[in-house]
Design a protein around this nucleic acid. Structure first.
Length: 286
DNA sequence: GTTTAACCCTGCACGC
DNA sequence: TGCGTGCAGGGTTAAA
């Protein structure tokens, strides 16, 4: 799950769970559940943090979703449930009557009936509760770079950041401390849209190329959110209501090895870069 | 600072 | 049908 999918999930959650009280939390006894709540000493500690709280808002930082929760009479000292979906994590709505799917790790049970389940087969995802006022002290969150959809993300800022580095564009776009929310799919799509090769050193871009990269970053990500994300492959992403995204039909290079480039007709190529497959047009990306 | 490889998991597609 | 292999949208760490 990359920024667009996480943002779609955040928006769905904002409509679905804000104002609802968490009556209880069930931490399942799946053999990998301890991994999913690894920052807590155990399920009981995790449960105690959330049971009896009310969700006030749902926020996002990079690929993390943050549920702000408050307890009656706590005087505004809120806590935050921080969630990273990894490669296969997702939230599913349910009720007591619905059977739990096999890789359910945590169930938030609401006072008004109904629940929210965290399901994650590969368990690269994670849930933890921290003080809402001290999220900056959580290492991973503190280092998350600016959001490409933020108004603060300007062309000048991007140009400055690119010039300070010498690394290749693709891994740089995926570096969450450089710009947040971009993963393997969207880095390829952004670079195609900007007509830039994955292995261009970041400090080699002309100002015109920086502008293209800037526009592509914003437009591709915004477009993907509007299409409710990309649903591809096994254990594919679906939104809170179980619906697939629609951006997969808009993909120009990702997963299209050997097919012809929509812009120039050349065959889309792929390379393996530090374990990740990268797709690009060898003719029109320079 | 940059780059690569290995690792943490499960499930699926594929070839034999 | 069964088995082995490789691959998957993420992120961290160690080593070169």
């Amino acid at each position: 799950m990359e920024l667009p999918e996480v943002e779609v999930m955040r928006r769905d959650l904002q409509k679905e769970v804000v104002g609802r009280r968490i009556e209880d939390v069930e931490v399942r006894s799946h053999r990998n559940t301890a991994r999913v709540i690894r920052r807590h000493r155990g399920g009981e500690e995790f449960r105690a943090e959330l049971a009896g709280t009310t969700i006030t808002t749902v926020d996002r930082r990079g690929k993390y979703v943050l549920f702000h929760v408050e307890r009656d009479g706590a005087g505004g000292r809120g806590r935050a449930l921080v969630v990273h979906f990894g490669m296969s994590g997702q939230f599913v709505r349910g009720t007591k009557k619905d059977a739990l799917s096999p890789h359910t790790h945590v169930v938030l049970e609401f006072l008004d009936g109904g629940d929210l389940r965290y399901v994650d087969p590969r368990t690269f995802g994670e849930l933890f509760v921290a003080s809402a006022g001290a999220l900056g002290e959580v290492k991973e969150l503190a280092h998350i770079a600016i959001d490409p959809l933020s108004e603060m993300f300007t062309r000048e800022r991007l140009a400055h950041a690119l010039a300070r580095r010498t690394v290749r564009l693709k891994p740089l776009l995926m570096d969450q401390t450089f710009v947040s929310g971009i993963g393997n799919i969207y880095s390829d799509e952004v670079l195609f849209d900007a007509r830039l090769r994955h292995d261009r050193p970041s400090n080699s871009l002309s100002s015109r190329e920086v502008l293209r990269l800037y526009r592509s970053l914003r437009e591709v990500v915004r477009d993907a959110v509007q299409h409710r994300g990309t649903t591809l492959g096994d254990q594919a992403y679906v939104d809170l209501f179980g619906n697939a995204g629609e951006f997969q039909s808009e993909l120009k290079v990702y997963g299209r090895k050997g097919l012809s480039c929509a812009r120039c007709g050349a065959a889309i190529g792929s390379v393996k870069l530090s374990g990740r497959t990268s797709y690009f047009c060898p003719r029109c990306q320079r």
